[in-house]
Simulated scan of single mutants.
Amino acid sequence: MKRIAVRNLRLCTKDCLCLYVCPNGATDTENSIIDTEKCIGCGVCADACPSGAISMVPVEYPPQQKKTEKVVAAMNRIAENKAKEEKVAMQLAASSDKPVFSKLMKAVARSARLSAEDIMREAGFMLPQNGNSLALIQQFADDPPTESFPIKEAEELLSSIECNDGGFKKKAKEGVRRYRCKLCFTEFEVEEGEEPVCPMCGAKGDDLELL
């Protein structure tokens, strides 16, 4: 399978070793993006990069395997289990007065969430939970790209999905206050007058941020 080199600009530390080892000059570009037309897929630059910023990726990915209903159902059960693990870990983190243990549980919760997201992605049901994706959906809902764009469905999606990286703030509804948990970063809404309590980890008071 033919592969080409790609550079992760966030990892690149400008060591420039790739410039000297590339036999075809594909890594020597003004914008730091490897020239795929010049790349011959030898992998020398990836081996030489001390920061691991260069990876070899296939030019064409193989077709996705067909998933039977039985497989998808099994993957969903695994994802649900990971979601429960995340909830338990965040509850333990919130209830512990030991910083090290609390930090460990937060790491376990984060790992469980990432595992669940990977499973859902493989099952073909990946939800747009990061801030950039949700902001894009909000933009489309506010300014539809086409006349047939499903605005109502987009708004329902935005109201039902929580941002998992804190990079998106939902529009506040009348008579409703929106909070973000500082412990598990879950965003949730409560009606005015009600005491806000994080539905994920049970945090209250100073552990919550009013959005």
Rank of each mutant, 00 (worst) to 15 (best):
P63E: 09
A112S: 11
C49S: 07
I34Y: 03
N130K: 13
N164T: 11
K66Q: 15
V72E: 09
E194I: 10
C12L: 06
C18T: 01
I119N: 06
Q91N: 09
I151F: 04
A112R: 02
V59T: 13
E86C: 06
L17Q: 14
A74H: 08
L104T: 13
E153M: 09
A46K: 01
A79F: 03
R177T: 00
G131I: 03
A74E: 11
S111A: 14
R7W: 01
E195M: 11
F185H: 12
F149V: 00
T36L: 14
P144G: 02
P128H: 05
C16R: 15
A5G: 07
C18S: 02
S95K: 14
I137H: 06
S159K: 13
K103H: 12
A83F: 11
E37C: 09
K66S: 15
A5Y: 05
L211W: 11
S96T: 13
L17C: 13
I4N: 09
M75I: 10
P199F: 02
R7I: 03
Q91D: 07
K82T: 08
E147I: 01
K103E: 15
Q64E: 15
A53Y: 03
E122I: 10
I4A: 09
E209H: 10
I40G: 06
C12H: 03
R113W: 07
R177V: 05
C16Q: 14
S159I: 00
A93P: 03
K204N: 13
D142K: 11
L158V: 03
P62W: 00
I119M: 08
R3H: 15
T29H: 04
K173P: 00
P196H: 00
T13V: 15
R7A: 05
K87L: 04
M120W: 11
C16N: 15
A83N: 14
T186K: 08
R7D: 01
A107E: 15
K84S: 11
A172Y: 00
A94I: 04
P199N: 05
D143I: 07
V57P: 04
D142G: 06
M90W: 04
G52T: 10
L9S: 03
S96M: 07
T36R: 14
L157Q: 07
S148F: 12
S111C: 09
G175V: 00
N76I: 12
L9M: 06
N31F: 05
R110V: 00
A79M: 04
L208P: 07
D142P: 04
A141T: 05
R3C: 14
Q65S: 15
D28I: 08
G175P: 00
A141V: 08
Q65G: 15
N76W: 12
A83C: 12
P62Y: 07
C39W: 03
V71D: 09
M126D: 14
A172R: 10
A53L: 03
D35K: 07
M105I: 02
R10F: 00
R180I: 02
G167E: 09
D28W: 10
P128Q: 05
C42N: 05
C201W: 02
N8I: 04
P196M: 01
L11P: 07
